[in-house]
């Protein structure tokens, strides 16, 4: 008997003997046993909560936000050129950070 023919025959029978097993509620039983899913808004709620708490702390520690008024007066008394330079530098820095984050996301997806 041809050995290769016999092996091919056996392999084919073995593959055929792996019939599809119907789910018959198996998936539902597994999902039922999973721990309760975190609500989707849970993470957002934590972030907003932390932001609010941090803002309140900053407000209280800064004497009712008085430093904002002081800094606003200082900014108004600066020469216009100096204010423009600060604005441009900040814009470039923020754009750079955003671009780096975007590139990083694209690279991860690929």
């Amino acid at each position: 008997m041809d050995k290769q023919l016999q092996e091919d025959w056996l392999d084919a029978r073995l593959r055929e003997e792996m019939p599809y097993i119907d789910d018959e509620g198996f998936t539902a039983r597994v999902v039922q046993k999973l721990p309760a899913a975190r609500p989707r808004s849970f993470r957002a709620a934590i972030l907003i909560g932390l932001t609010v708490v941090a803002s309140v702390i900053a407000y209280l520690l800064s004497d009712g936000g008085r430093f904002l008024v002081v800094e606003a007066y200082r900014l108004m008394s600066m020469p216009l050129v100096f204010v423009s330079v600060i604005a441009i530098v900040l814009s470039v820095a923020i754009t750079g950070i955003a671009a780096a984050a975007a590139f990083s996301t694209v690279r991860q997806r690929h």
């Binding site: 792996m18 019939p19 599809y20 097993i21 119907d22 789910d23 198996f26 998936t27 539902a28 597994v30 999902v31 999973l34 899913a37 975190r38 989707r40």
Partner: peptide, 24 residues
């Protein structure tokens, strides 16, 4: 990312036959 149970159910559905067959 989302702890998406529907996505996990899909994974189970896709692989249950092979895993149950192997274990059988």
């Amino acid at each position: 990312v989302d702890d998406d149970h529907h996505a996990f159910a899909e994974l189970v559905r896709n692989h249950q036959s092979a895993v149950r067959g192997l274990l059988r």
